[in-house]
Design a protein around this nucleic acid. Structure first.
Length: 488
RNA sequence: GGCGGCGUAGCCAAGUGGUAAGGCGACGGCCUGCAAAGCCGUGAAUCCGGGGUUCGAAUCCCCGCGCCGCCUCCA
């Protein structure tokens, strides 16, 4: 096994990953605030940490993976008010949708998915600890964290408190002693949901839940804490302050942050109207297309969504499954060893396994890992023609290649692991449905074309192929008969 | 004003000191009834520009130019 090197935002460098008490790894990733539908950015975070989770398990670690839900917050309350529903209903709806969509994307379920409102006592207890330590103060039923009492404040984001005050927009509140102080407990305004606390009715501040829940499920020190780059400040900075001030222990060993999504080069935002929802993407593309698109760029870099880019991902994925589809059809026609092409593929397979894992071990470089998959694929395609009359050893090699693709990119990236036959058939059906075509319409024409070809009536055969193309169906003739796919 | 990132072929994207992965596209050849797919080959005198360090730099340093993110809720 290669060493796993992971970029740590705390040190701004790649480090060899060593958990505190192997083989256990505690990983806590900030989930969503359940007030609206999930967008591509949420999917990216979920997929990136899903790959990290899968890879850690592949390396033999026992991973406790926690991803939380913020189910009480201003935005949830506002939406509830606007729609005349309860905040619980709003949160419940978007959590459920998120779970369904992530499942559709092949994102594995975390070990725990705690919700903020189910941990109010833990949060209150944490606030009390902070008060007891003298790093928090109470004003009018609210509790604030006193940033100047925590010497390390700013160590994650690389900001000095002095700098943050100059020229920056910080929330103004007369209640705070220092503008950088943040709320641990907010007093309830009339009509707002609240929980009783030693400081009066109110609700927890946003940052507090992650500290309280990670403490409960993972202990005082996390091996990995993740989230989007946009959470570095203030969210994760504040979590560090709260947690370390309370426990006196390092909160996190490795902070991992994924890059953000842009759309046609612009920040994705509702106000810009360029919001890409997961629901819509799932209606148009196979989940693996979306995963492939998300993983073609290194997780820390910004990723630009364009129609062209996701279509390219789809094309590449179809190419992958197309080759696997034929590989799967290879049958042994006689006993025998590998011939030249087989030996070459066997060698490529070995190289592939080693390089694929090495790529992921280098800070989860999925772009390189995928490049290796396509390198292997190119060898598969070279092998294919001669393997129509496969020897027993060649047929076995074909099975071996399929197994490796399923076990490495399939199991670790969630790309390429489906049964090729099912994938192809499934995509045909899906695309036909989108175009309002029936399978029968396609098959009748294919059949007629085959008959025309047998009769060497190529004019008619070509006319039928043209007709299919106009319907969006591309046909190509293979040794195994006509193979067809439907255009996007 | 502060902090950070990015600029690599037509497009996307790896590579962070040893002589440019991969995807999409383009062109030529093979294959094909013709196509398509695939395979083979072509394609960056060179990595935004300029200086510097080094035997050697896309990779390190400095100075510019351009783009972007964060500093307020945000994956």
């Amino acid at each position: 096994m290669p060493e796993f090197r992971l970029y740590n935002t705390l040190t701004r460098s790649k480090e060899v990953f060593e958990p505190l008490s192997p083989p256990r790894v505690n990983m806590y990733v900030c989930g969503i605030t359940a007030y609206d539908e999930a967008h591509l950015g949420h999917a990216r975070a979920a997929v990136v940490f899903d790959v990290l989770y899968r890879f850690l398990r592949y390396l033999g670690y026992r991973v406790v993976y926690v991803r939380n839900y913020t189910d009480i917050d201003d935005k949830i309350i506002n939406r509830a008010l606007r729609e005349g529903r309860s905040w619980q209903e709003i949160a419940e709806q978007y959590i459920r949708e998120y779970q369904e969509e992530m499942a559709a994307l092949g994102v594995l379920k975390p070990t725990h998915e705690p919700r903020a409102t189910e941990h109010i006592p833990e949060m209150i207890a944490l606030v009390e600890r902070l008060l007891a330590r003298g790093v928090a103060y109470v004003v009018d039923g609210e509790v604030y964290f006193a940033v100047e009492k925590f010497p390390g404040y700013g160590k994650l984001s690389g900001r000095r408190p002095e700098d943050m005050l100059a020229g920056a927009r910080v929330e103004v509140s007369e209640k705070k002693r220092n503008p950088l102080d943040f709320a641990l407990w907010k007093a309830a305004k009339p009509g707002e949901p609240f929980w009783d606390s030693p400081w009066g009715p109110g609700r927890p501040g946003w940052h507090l839940e992650c500290s309280a829940m990670s403490l409960k499920y993972c202990g005082e020190t996390l091996d990995i804490h993740g989230g989007g780059l946009d959470l570095i400040f203030p969210h994760h900075e504040n979590e560090i302050a709260q947690s370390e001030a309370a426990t006196g222990k390092p909160f996190v060993r490795y902070f991992v942050h994924n890059g953000l999504i842009t759309v046609n080069g612009e920040k994705m935002a509702k106000s810009l109207g360029n919001y890409v929802s997961v629901k819509e993407l799932l209606s148009r593309y196979h989940p693996e297309t979306i995963r492939l698109f998300l993983l073609t760029k290194h997780y820390r870099s910004p990723l630009d969504y364009t129609e062209q880019a996701i279509k390219e991902a789809e094309k590449a994925l179809y190419g992958l499954y197309g080759s696997l589809y034929f590989l799967q059809r290879i049958k042994s026609v006689r006993e025998g060893e590998l011939r030249k092409g087989g030996r070459r593929l066997a060698q490529a397979l070995e190289t592939f396994q080693q390089r694929f894992v090495a790529a992921l071990a280098d800070d989860l470089n999925t772009a390189v890992a995928l490049g290796e998959v396509f390198n292997l694929l190119s060898e598969v395609n070279r092998f294919l023609p001669a393997a129509r009359e496969a020897t027993s050893a060649e047929a076995q090699l074909a099975t071996e290649v399929l197994r490796v693709i399923k076990d490495l990119p399939g199991a670790l990236l969630g790309v390429g692991g489906a049964d090729p036959e099912s994938f192809i058939q499934g995509e045909r059906e899906r695309k036909l449905a989108r175009r309002g075509l029936s399978r029968r319409e396609v098959e009748e024409r294919l059949q007629a074309r085959e008959e025309a070809r047998k009769a060497r009536d190529f004019a008619r055969a070509d006319a039928l192929r043209e007709e299919l193309l106009r319907l969006g169906v591309e046909v190509r003739d293979t040794p195994w008969g006509p193979f067809w796919m439907v255009e996007a």
